[in-house]
């Protein structure tokens, strides 16, 4: 299965944040931190994306901790593969851009 996937910026940062288990608000904070405040995930967007990513099997919901009741999510092996492929694709994009624009 080698789909030619292009992730949205939201999906990319959600997957990247979930290399370690995180709950919703943690993902929002991590995304903002990683992108130096440029990318802000809104809660409604994130909620929809988390459900869709669980359905795809790229992330899983961890058993709910009885005390905090907050749901945590984590990347699956499949999700990690998708993410690594995306990093390769982004490198290619950036390299091509630099090559063409480099002399300007």
């Amino acid at each position: 299965m080698q789909e030619n996937l292009v992730l949205t910026e939201s999906t990319y940062y959600i997957l990247l944040s979930l290399v370690e288990p995180r709950h919703g608000y943690g993902i929002m904070q991590m995304t903002e931190e990683l992108s130096n405040g440029r990318v802000r995930l809104a809660a409604g967007t994130l909620y929809g994306a988390l459900n869709a990513l669980c359905d795809k099997g790229w992330i899983v919901q961890l058993p709910v901790d009885a005390q905090s009741r907050r749901k945590e999510y984590e990347l699956t092996a499949k999700g990690l593969r998708v993410l690594k492929n995306e990093v390769l694709r982004l490198k290619e994009l950036a390299a091509n851009g630099e090559e063409v624009l480099g002399e300007l």
Binding site: T8, S10, R40, A42
Partner: peptide
Amino acid sequence: GNFDLFSDLDSKINH
């Protein structure tokens, strides 16, 4: 901090 429900075009279109 910022408060939005939808932060990308896809989720706005979905709504």
